[in-house]
Protein backbone atom coordinates (compact mmCIF):
# COMPACT_ATOMS: atom_id res chain seq x y z
CA UNK A 1 0.00 0.00 0.00
CA UNK A 2 1.25 3.47 -0.85
CA UNK A 3 0.84 6.14 1.77
CA UNK A 4 1.50 9.84 1.73
CA UNK A 5 2.47 11.29 5.10
CA UNK A 6 2.33 15.01 5.63
CA UNK A 7 4.27 15.64 8.80
CA UNK A 8 4.45 18.84 10.84
CA UNK A 9 8.15 19.39 11.54
CA UNK A 10 9.84 21.85 13.84
CA UNK A 11 13.48 22.07 14.89
CA UNK A 12 14.20 24.42 17.78
CA UNK A 13 17.94 24.38 17.05
CA UNK A 14 17.38 25.69 13.57
CA UNK A 15 15.05 28.27 15.13
CA UNK A 16 12.84 27.93 12.12
CA UNK A 17 9.09 28.13 11.98
CA UNK A 18 7.13 24.90 11.88
CA UNK A 19 6.75 23.52 8.37
CA UNK A 20 5.10 20.63 6.58
CA UNK A 21 7.13 17.89 5.03
CA UNK A 22 5.62 15.22 2.82
CA UNK A 23 6.85 11.66 2.51
CA UNK A 24 5.70 8.93 0.17
CA UNK A 25 6.09 5.43 1.60
CA UNK A 26 5.25 1.93 0.45
CA UNK A 27 4.14 -0.11 3.45
CA UNK A 28 2.39 -3.43 4.15
CA UNK A 29 -1.41 -3.22 4.39
CA UNK A 30 -1.53 -4.07 8.08
CA UNK A 31 0.72 -1.15 9.08
CA UNK A 32 -0.25 1.30 11.76
CA UNK A 33 0.75 4.93 11.50
CA UNK A 34 3.42 4.23 14.09
CA UNK A 35 4.85 1.39 12.00
CA UNK A 36 5.05 3.81 9.09
CA UNK A 37 6.66 6.56 11.14
CA UNK A 38 9.25 4.11 12.45
CA UNK A 39 9.99 2.95 8.92
CA UNK A 40 10.26 6.59 7.91
CA UNK A 41 12.63 7.37 10.77
CA UNK A 42 14.77 4.30 10.23
CA UNK A 43 15.03 4.30 6.47
CA UNK A 44 14.23 7.73 5.12
CA UNK A 45 14.77 10.55 7.58
CA UNK A 46 16.62 9.88 10.83
CA UNK A 47 16.11 13.44 11.99
CA UNK A 48 12.40 12.92 12.64
CA UNK A 49 11.72 12.87 16.38
CA UNK A 50 8.76 11.20 18.02
CA UNK A 51 8.05 9.33 21.22
CA UNK A 52 7.00 5.71 20.99
CA UNK A 53 7.46 2.54 22.92
CA UNK A 54 5.01 -0.32 23.43
CA UNK A 55 3.29 -0.41 20.02
CA UNK A 56 0.19 -1.86 21.67
CA UNK A 57 -1.82 1.03 23.14
CA UNK A 58 -0.62 0.63 26.68
CA UNK A 59 2.33 2.96 27.30
CA UNK A 60 0.76 6.19 26.03
CA UNK A 61 3.92 7.51 24.36
CA UNK A 62 2.84 8.05 20.78
CA UNK A 63 0.00 10.54 21.14
CA UNK A 64 -0.18 12.88 18.17
CA UNK A 65 -2.75 14.53 15.94
CA UNK A 66 -3.74 12.42 12.99
CA UNK A 67 -5.84 14.16 10.36
CA UNK A 68 -6.57 16.87 12.89
CA UNK A 69 -7.54 14.76 15.90
CA UNK A 70 -5.43 13.34 18.69
CA UNK A 71 -4.86 9.60 18.77
CA UNK A 72 -2.15 7.06 19.45
CA UNK A 73 -0.11 6.44 16.32
CA UNK A 74 0.07 2.77 17.27
CA UNK A 75 -3.72 2.58 17.38
CA UNK A 76 -4.20 4.18 13.99
CA UNK A 77 -4.39 1.64 11.19
CA UNK A 78 -3.47 3.33 7.95
CA UNK A 79 -5.97 1.28 5.98
CA UNK A 80 -8.79 2.63 8.19
CA UNK A 81 -8.07 6.28 7.48
CA UNK A 82 -9.60 6.55 4.01
CA UNK A 83 -7.59 9.66 3.13
CA UNK A 84 -5.04 10.03 0.37
CA UNK A 85 -2.71 12.03 2.56
CA UNK A 86 -2.36 11.47 6.28
CA UNK A 87 -1.54 14.63 8.18
CA UNK A 88 0.50 14.10 11.31
CA UNK A 89 1.01 16.88 13.84
CA UNK A 90 2.18 17.16 17.42
CA UNK A 91 -0.55 17.17 20.05
CA UNK A 92 -2.28 20.46 20.76
CA UNK A 93 -2.45 22.58 23.90
CA UNK A 94 1.20 21.74 24.63
CA UNK A 95 4.38 23.48 23.48
CA UNK A 96 6.42 21.62 20.87
CA UNK A 97 9.95 20.49 21.79
CA UNK A 98 10.81 19.05 18.41
CA UNK A 99 8.73 17.64 15.54
CA UNK A 100 6.09 15.38 17.09
CA UNK A 101 7.53 15.63 20.61
CA UNK A 102 5.64 17.99 22.92
CA UNK A 103 6.51 19.38 26.33
CA UNK A 104 4.56 17.28 28.84
CA UNK A 105 5.78 19.01 31.99
CA UNK A 106 2.65 21.19 32.32
CA UNK A 107 0.59 18.04 31.80
CA UNK A 108 2.27 16.28 34.73
CA UNK A 109 2.06 19.36 36.93
CA UNK A 110 -1.71 19.44 36.49
CA UNK A 111 -1.82 15.81 37.45
CA UNK A 112 0.28 16.38 40.57
CA UNK A 113 -1.97 19.30 41.54
CA UNK A 114 -4.86 16.99 42.40
CA UNK A 115 -2.89 14.89 44.93
CA UNK A 116 -3.09 11.83 42.71
CA UNK A 117 -2.75 9.10 45.31
CA UNK A 118 -5.03 7.18 47.60
CA UNK A 119 -5.75 8.90 50.91
CA UNK A 120 -7.40 6.36 53.16
CA UNK A 121 -8.57 7.06 56.69
CA UNK A 122 -8.06 5.10 59.88
CA UNK A 123 -5.96 2.06 60.57
CA UNK A 124 -4.54 0.12 57.67
CA UNK A 125 -6.26 -3.26 57.82
CA UNK A 126 -4.27 -6.41 58.36
CA UNK A 127 -5.67 -7.87 55.17
CA UNK A 128 -7.16 -6.11 52.18
CA UNK A 129 -9.86 -3.45 52.40
CA UNK A 130 -13.13 -5.29 52.02
CA UNK A 131 -15.20 -3.45 49.42
CA UNK A 132 -17.97 -4.34 46.98
CA UNK A 133 -16.69 -6.13 43.90
CA UNK A 134 -18.49 -3.76 41.55
CA UNK A 135 -16.88 -0.71 43.15
CA UNK A 136 -13.45 -2.00 42.15
CA UNK A 137 -14.65 -3.11 38.74
CA UNK A 138 -16.09 0.36 38.18
CA UNK A 139 -12.63 1.87 38.64
CA UNK A 140 -11.22 -0.25 35.78
CA UNK A 141 -12.77 2.17 33.32
CA UNK A 142 -10.62 5.01 34.66
CA UNK A 143 -7.57 2.97 35.62
CA UNK A 144 -7.50 2.23 31.90
CA UNK A 145 -6.16 5.76 31.40
CA UNK A 146 -2.60 5.58 30.10
CA UNK A 147 -1.88 9.31 30.40
CA UNK A 148 -1.21 9.70 26.71
CA UNK A 149 -2.50 13.27 26.71
CA UNK A 150 -4.83 12.88 23.73
CA UNK A 151 -7.76 14.35 25.68
CA UNK A 152 -5.69 17.28 26.86
CA UNK A 153 -4.47 17.85 23.31
CA UNK A 154 -7.96 18.34 21.95
CA UNK A 155 -9.58 19.90 25.03
CA UNK A 156 -11.48 23.01 24.00
CA UNK A 157 -11.57 24.62 27.44
CA UNK A 158 -7.82 24.30 27.83
CA UNK A 159 -7.33 26.05 24.52
CA UNK A 160 -8.65 29.26 26.07
CA UNK A 161 -8.18 28.62 29.79
CA UNK A 162 -4.71 27.48 30.90
CA UNK A 163 -5.96 27.19 34.48
CA UNK A 164 -8.33 24.39 33.55
CA UNK A 165 -7.17 21.25 35.32
CA UNK A 166 -8.03 19.20 32.28
CA UNK A 167 -9.58 15.86 31.38
CA UNK A 168 -6.70 13.54 32.32
CA UNK A 169 -6.38 14.91 35.84
CA UNK A 170 -10.15 14.92 36.27
CA UNK A 171 -10.38 11.28 35.24
CA UNK A 172 -7.71 10.54 37.83
CA UNK A 173 -9.57 12.55 40.43
CA UNK A 174 -12.75 10.64 39.70
CA UNK A 175 -10.81 7.43 40.24
CA UNK A 176 -10.13 8.47 43.84
CA UNK A 177 -13.49 10.08 44.52
CA UNK A 178 -15.14 6.80 43.52
CA UNK A 179 -12.65 4.58 45.34
CA UNK A 180 -14.32 3.31 48.52
CA UNK A 181 -10.93 3.37 50.25
CA UNK A 182 -10.20 7.05 49.63
CA UNK A 183 -11.39 9.30 52.43
CA UNK A 184 -10.40 12.65 50.96
CA UNK A 185 -13.36 12.93 48.60
CA UNK A 186 -14.77 16.06 50.22
CA UNK A 187 -11.50 17.96 49.89
CA UNK A 188 -11.10 16.61 46.38
CA UNK A 189 -14.57 17.77 45.38
CA UNK A 190 -13.97 21.18 46.93
CA UNK A 191 -10.89 21.57 44.77
CA UNK A 192 -12.95 20.53 41.75
CA UNK A 193 -15.41 23.29 42.60
CA UNK A 194 -12.75 25.98 42.38
CA UNK A 195 -11.10 27.88 39.52
CA UNK A 196 -10.10 25.56 36.70
CA UNK A 197 -12.39 22.93 38.18
CA UNK A 198 -15.19 20.84 36.75
CA UNK A 199 -17.46 23.79 36.04
CA UNK A 200 -14.92 25.09 33.54
CA UNK A 201 -15.49 22.10 31.25
CA UNK A 202 -17.29 23.19 28.10
CA UNK A 203 -18.96 19.84 27.49
CA UNK A 204 -17.65 19.52 23.93
CA UNK A 205 -17.08 15.72 24.00
CA UNK A 206 -13.63 16.10 22.42
CA UNK A 207 -11.99 14.11 25.22
CA UNK A 208 -14.61 11.38 24.98
CA UNK A 209 -14.13 11.23 21.25
CA UNK A 210 -10.33 11.06 21.10
CA UNK A 211 -9.58 8.90 24.16
CA UNK A 212 -7.95 5.73 22.83
CA UNK A 213 -8.89 3.81 25.97
CA UNK A 214 -12.58 4.77 26.32
CA UNK A 215 -12.00 6.51 29.63
CA UNK A 216 -14.66 9.14 28.75
CA UNK A 217 -13.18 11.92 30.90
CA UNK A 218 -16.10 14.29 30.27
CA UNK A 219 -18.56 11.78 31.64
CA UNK A 220 -16.43 11.62 34.81
CA UNK A 221 -16.43 15.40 35.01
CA UNK A 222 -20.22 15.47 34.72
CA UNK A 223 -20.49 12.80 37.40
CA UNK A 224 -18.36 14.92 39.73
CA UNK A 225 -20.53 17.97 39.04
CA UNK A 226 -23.46 15.91 40.21
CA UNK A 227 -21.58 14.85 43.33
CA UNK A 228 -20.73 18.46 44.09
CA UNK A 229 -24.41 19.31 44.09
CA UNK A 230 -25.62 16.13 45.77
CA UNK A 231 -23.02 16.40 48.52
CA UNK A 232 -23.89 20.02 49.10
CA UNK A 233 -20.31 21.10 48.48
CA UNK A 234 -21.59 23.84 46.26
CA UNK A 235 -24.82 25.73 46.22
CA UNK A 236 -23.79 29.17 45.17
CA UNK A 237 -21.75 28.18 42.15
CA UNK A 238 -23.43 29.09 38.89
CA UNK A 239 -22.96 25.49 37.80
CA UNK A 240 -25.05 24.27 40.69
CA UNK A 241 -27.60 27.05 40.21
CA UNK A 242 -27.83 26.11 36.58
CA UNK A 243 -28.59 22.47 37.37
CA UNK A 244 -31.30 23.53 39.78
CA UNK A 245 -32.71 26.19 37.46
CA UNK A 246 -32.92 23.74 34.62
CA UNK A 247 -34.66 21.11 36.66
CA UNK A 248 -37.02 23.65 38.22
CA UNK A 249 -38.01 25.24 34.94
CA UNK A 250 -38.32 22.06 32.93
CA UNK A 251 -40.15 20.50 35.87
CA UNK A 252 -42.58 23.43 35.91
CA UNK A 253 -43.09 24.22 32.26
CA UNK A 254 -41.82 21.08 30.52
CA UNK A 255 -39.49 23.26 28.52
CA UNK A 256 -36.75 25.76 29.12
CA UNK A 257 -37.40 29.44 29.37
CA UNK A 258 -34.07 31.11 28.70
CA UNK A 259 -34.56 34.43 30.41
CA UNK A 260 -35.77 32.89 33.65
CA UNK A 261 -33.06 30.30 33.34
CA UNK A 262 -30.37 32.93 33.05
CA UNK A 263 -31.73 34.87 36.00
CA UNK A 264 -31.77 31.77 38.15
CA UNK A 265 -28.37 30.48 37.14
CA UNK A 266 -26.12 33.49 37.46
CA UNK A 267 -25.63 35.56 40.59
CA UNK A 268 -27.17 39.02 40.91
CA UNK A 269 -23.79 40.66 40.53
CA UNK A 270 -23.15 38.94 37.24
CA UNK A 271 -26.60 39.62 35.86
CA UNK A 272 -25.57 43.16 35.08
CA UNK A 273 -23.02 41.79 32.65
CA UNK A 274 -25.82 40.05 30.79
CA UNK A 275 -28.13 43.06 30.80
CA UNK A 276 -26.53 44.37 27.65
CA UNK A 277 -27.12 41.08 25.93
CA UNK A 278 -30.73 41.09 27.09
CA UNK A 279 -31.26 44.56 25.81
CA UNK A 280 -29.71 43.72 22.46
CA UNK A 281 -31.95 40.70 22.19
CA UNK A 282 -35.05 42.60 23.18
CA UNK A 283 -34.37 45.20 20.50
CA UNK A 284 -34.26 42.43 17.91
CA UNK A 285 -37.45 40.82 19.10
CA UNK A 286 -35.59 37.81 20.43
CA UNK A 287 -36.68 37.79 24.04
CA UNK A 288 -38.71 34.77 25.09
CA UNK A 289 -42.36 35.41 25.95
CA UNK A 290 -43.01 37.02 29.30
CA UNK A 291 -45.45 34.31 30.22
CA UNK A 292 -43.58 31.10 29.53
CA UNK A 293 -45.06 28.61 27.20
CA UNK A 294 -46.02 25.50 29.09
CA UNK A 295 -46.39 22.05 27.53
CA UNK A 296 -49.61 20.16 28.22
CA UNK A 297 -49.34 18.00 31.32
CA UNK A 298 -46.08 19.61 32.39
CA UNK A 299 -46.68 18.32 35.88
CA UNK A 300 -45.79 14.86 34.66
CA UNK A 301 -42.24 16.00 34.02
CA UNK A 302 -41.79 17.18 37.58
CA UNK A 303 -43.21 13.89 38.79
CA UNK A 304 -40.65 12.02 36.68
CA UNK A 305 -37.85 14.11 38.15
CA UNK A 306 -39.01 13.46 41.68
CA UNK A 307 -39.34 9.74 41.15
CA UNK A 308 -35.99 9.21 39.40
CA UNK A 309 -34.23 11.34 41.97
CA UNK A 310 -35.54 9.14 44.74
CA UNK A 311 -33.55 6.23 43.29
CA UNK A 312 -30.32 8.14 43.81
CA UNK A 313 -27.72 6.23 45.81
CA UNK A 314 -24.67 7.78 47.30
CA UNK A 315 -21.30 6.32 46.38
CA UNK A 316 -19.93 3.67 48.73
CA UNK A 317 -17.22 4.99 51.06
CA UNK A 318 -15.50 2.93 53.73
CA UNK A 319 -14.79 5.85 56.05
CA UNK A 320 -18.44 6.81 56.08
CA UNK A 321 -19.45 3.23 56.73
CA UNK A 322 -17.05 3.24 59.66
CA UNK A 323 -18.53 6.48 61.01
CA UNK A 324 -22.00 5.14 60.71
CA UNK A 325 -20.86 2.03 62.55
CA UNK A 326 -22.25 -0.25 59.90
CA UNK A 327 -20.49 -3.15 58.31
CA UNK A 328 -19.88 -3.96 54.71
Amino acid sequence: MDVQLKVRRQNPEAEGEPYWKEYALAVPDHFTLLDALIQLREEVDETLSLRCSCRSHICGSCGMRVNGHANLACKTKLSDLHTDTVTVEPMGNMPVIKDLVVDLEPFWKKLYSIDPYLQPAGEVPEREYVVPADSMLHLDGVVNCIMCGACVSDCESLSVNPLFIGPTAFAKEYRFVMDPRDAADTQRLMQMNGPGGVWDCTHCFQCVEVCPKDVAPMDRIMAMRKMLVDDGVTEKHNGARRQKAFADLVGRYGRLDESRYLMKSVSMGELAGYAKVGLRSAMRGKLPPLVPHRIPEAARIRRIFERTRSTHRRRFKLHQQAQEGSRV
Binding site: A247, T308, R309, H312
Partner: peptide, 11 residues
Protein backbone atom coordinates in the same frame (compact mmCIF):
# COMPACT_ATOMS: atom_id res chain seq x y z
CA UNK B 1 -29.55 19.84 26.89
CA UNK B 2 -27.13 17.73 28.91
CA UNK B 3 -27.86 19.65 32.11
CA UNK B 4 -30.76 17.50 33.29
CA UNK B 5 -28.67 14.37 32.81
CA UNK B 6 -25.76 16.05 34.57
CA UNK B 7 -28.05 16.44 37.59
CA UNK B 8 -29.76 13.09 37.22
CA UNK B 9 -28.82 10.78 34.34
CA UNK B 10 -31.92 8.63 34.76
CA UNK B 11 -34.22 11.66 34.60
Amino acid sequence: AGVISERDPLA
